[in-house]
Write a protein that binds this DNA or RNA. Sequence first.
DNA 1: TGACATTAGTGACCGTTTGTTACTAATTCG
DNA 2: CGAATTAGTAACAAACGGTCACTAATGTCA
Lengths: 231, 231
Amino acid sequence: MRERSSTPMKSAVRRTTLAVDVVVLSPRADALAVLLVRAPPGARERWTLPWDAPRLDEGLEDAASRIAEAVLGAAPAFFEQAGAFSDGKRHPGDADVSIGIVALVPARAEAPAADTEWFPLDALPTLTPRHRAVVERAAAVARQRVDQSPLAFRLLSPTFTLSDLQSVYELLLGRPLHKASFRRALQASYLVEPTDEWRSEGRGRPAQLFRFAPRKRRGARRGVRFDLFTE
Amino acid sequence: MRERSSTPMKSAVRRTTLAVDVVVLSPRADALAVLLVRAPPGARERWTLPWDAPRLDEGLEDAASRIAEAVLGAAPAFFEQAGAFSDGKRHPGDADVSIGIVALVPARAEAPAADTEWFPLDALPTLTPRHRAVVERAAAVARQRVDQSPLAFRLLSPTFTLSDLQSVYELLLGRPLHKASFRRALQASYLVEPTDEWRSEGRGRPAQLFRFAPRKRRGARRGVRFDLFTE
DNA sequence: TGACATTAGTGACCGTTTGTTACTAATTCG
DNA sequence: CGAATTAGTAACAAACGGTCACTAATGTCA
């Protein structure tokens, strides 16, 4: 058997600088937007993701919640890890490692803090290379998991119309969906239930409001899908 | 507008101890197995995941590759992040934060280093709470992404029979699949191509060997699926 | 040698799902 | 009022997917 290096498991851990970078996503003006914070004067880029180092004994999601609350005024209800980043890319705080965390907030969330602004994902200002990578990964994660977790519903108010829901799916997937197919699949899934309220949005027929209320899942898993590969 | 705490973006990053914990998965004896390392004498648990702190300017996947190579003798070809862990749970090296990384190796990989052993996922020895969580998350990630990335093929040799492939899918999904449906879907996906070799495995008709050779993707994405929610 | 067990691979039936078109319903605007 | 606009549904045809039944090629064993 060939020579092997000594097992790394005995070495001591090094001290590293760690940042939690939060990607707050929300649908704004027919595009998915991310909330950025104005960088302090003198910084090389003018905008950054909201970020901070996690505090002692603070979970990563707890840190993300605290960071998001500082810029939003309220904590988002949904977080998901987007990955860890430690390539040599530059970070605003020169952190060795970033944990990217996606936070989703509905379109009608409170006005954000001063010195913050929403930017559509396809019109971002210059960010540090690390933050650029975090945002791209976060968007990819959101798109990838949209049909595995109730992610789309976290981008909507507690009650919403089916057209609202379809729009969010179209934003996330980046392609138009057919109304009849979309509704038929949704009905079959028992994920939403109608309320007895209706919303009249200017012209056109008023739409019934629904709420997210997933019923018990039908165990009937179907066959393997080979057509969903993304790489 | 209500009072808000000062923006965290100005605070300095703290120093944190960081570990990369690697979950090497491989199909062994009709079960998915993880490679564990015998802990040094005196440790509270007798087995740990292979882990180490990342070196200076070393990417996380690079660290995972180095750690896996130390126990396997060769670097796995496939890595995927399973998440970051920073709850208060105990880690063998008392790292504040763990990055869990899944590595996949084919069943016929080289013999592992001394002081290592394969354990089926459903018969693990006692691990530190942190490592237990990392393994569980890693297994969940592998299962979740099996039909989004060519993960199953990384658990097989470069050439394999269609029955081999189906077995891996069944291991990952934890349920039996129907042969005819599985093959029909696979053929339609243009993910594999036949070689002109055959394998005779004791009794029964010899099986043709295939290799993973994904063809150009058909742009035709289909509708939304609401029946894949896992939470 | 020949019957049988075992594994590989395919054809076909048929109920379900899904893309699509086309319709009806309820509202605002002019 | 009629046109425009948005919501919601029925129904058809094609594709998909679960299942059964069959053929094919090998080893085992009487």
